[in-house]
């Protein structure tokens, strides 16, 4: 408990210092899509990435395929909803830490409605009351506070991350209220079940996507890195209420340059593209 209090204190003081010195524009500039990919640890990251791929190939992917094969779509959708619902308490905490009190109210209401009328979160009646789902984690909160993302980091088994997101992940595992249910032994068990189910559920929803990336990438590692960075950037820009697509505009700055300064487009090619 002591460590949790210390962590909460650190987070809060970071919050206060963050608010004092960082404006929304600065946060945007730091987090929003830039052409630069910061990956000074690339050789190390690639090693961990290869290890993770072996684990994925022989353990996670086969389990995800089994999961999708055995459980009907109805059951899988229920699990996705239940996992979303279990993320609501930690989302509420992060809404508050981001000073989004209206959103904190929505997350709380969602959790209350879906845990009861929605039968332990297996259904999403809250959405019918106009309470749309959104999910916040400590990584996003740290971003909103203006903490820099740091270099790209591939963690063993956990996959793509950054120092900021890893700090967020540790905070979540210490502070998530849903991890406080039951006695100590049950808590541990519940945590492993939740983490395992989340991983398998996520993987089962993305079997084709990752197969496609793996088979069709010229550089699988770089493709995953880009997907991760872009996905996190767009979540942060959502927090700042900037449309992710509009945010990416600066990435397209030189798009037409290729049209203007070079009219050579090569011969017209018809492709015989096999199945």
């Amino acid at each position: 408990m002591k460590s949790k209090l210390v962590l909460l204190f650190v987070l809060l003081s970071l919050s206060i210092s963050g608010c004092a010195s960082i404006t929304k524009d600065e946060v945007l500039a730091e987090n929003i899509a830039t052409q630069k990919v910061s990956d000074p640890l690339e050789p190390f990251n690639r090693m961990v990435f290869s290890f993770n791929n072996v684990f994925d190939k022989y353990a996670l992917r086969p389990v995800a395929i089994l999961y999708r094969g055995v459980l009907p779509e109805f059951a899988r959708n229920r699990i996705t909803y239940a996992l979303n619902n279990l993320s609501m308490p930690i989302t509420t905490i992060n809404n508050i830490l981001q000073f989004e009190f209206g959103k904190a109210g929505i997350s709380t209401a969602r959790f209350v409605i879906n845990s009861t009328i929605g039968i332990l979160g297996f259904f999403d009646p809250a959405a019918y009351f106009g309470l749309e789902a959104s999910s916040e984690d400590f990584g996003q909160t740290l971003a909103v506070w203006g903490i820099p993302k740091g270099p790209y980091l591939v963690l063993p088994l956990l996959g793509p991350s950054s120092p900021r997101d890893f700090t967020g992940l540790l905070s979540t595992s210490l502070l998530d209220p849903t991890y406080q249910i039951g006695n100590t032994a049950n808590r541990e068990l519940f945590r492993y079940y939740k983490m395992g189910t989340s991983a398998v559920n996520f993987r089962s929803e993305n079997i084709e996507l990752f197969d496609d990336l793996q088979n069709n990438s010229v550089d699988y590692y770089a493709a995953v890195r880009s997907f991760y960075n872009q996905s996190r950037n767009s979540q942060v820009s959502d927090n700042l209420e900037v449309s992710p697509s509009v945010n990416q505009d600066n990435l397209f700055n030189d798009f037409e340059e290729f049209d203007l300064d070079d009219t050579y487009i090569g011969p017209d090619i018809s492709i015989d593209y096999p199945e």
Partner: peptide, 10 residues
Amino acid sequence: IAQREEFQSF
């Protein structure tokens, strides 16, 4: 953007 980063990295 992902494609561009991938090609640059390759």
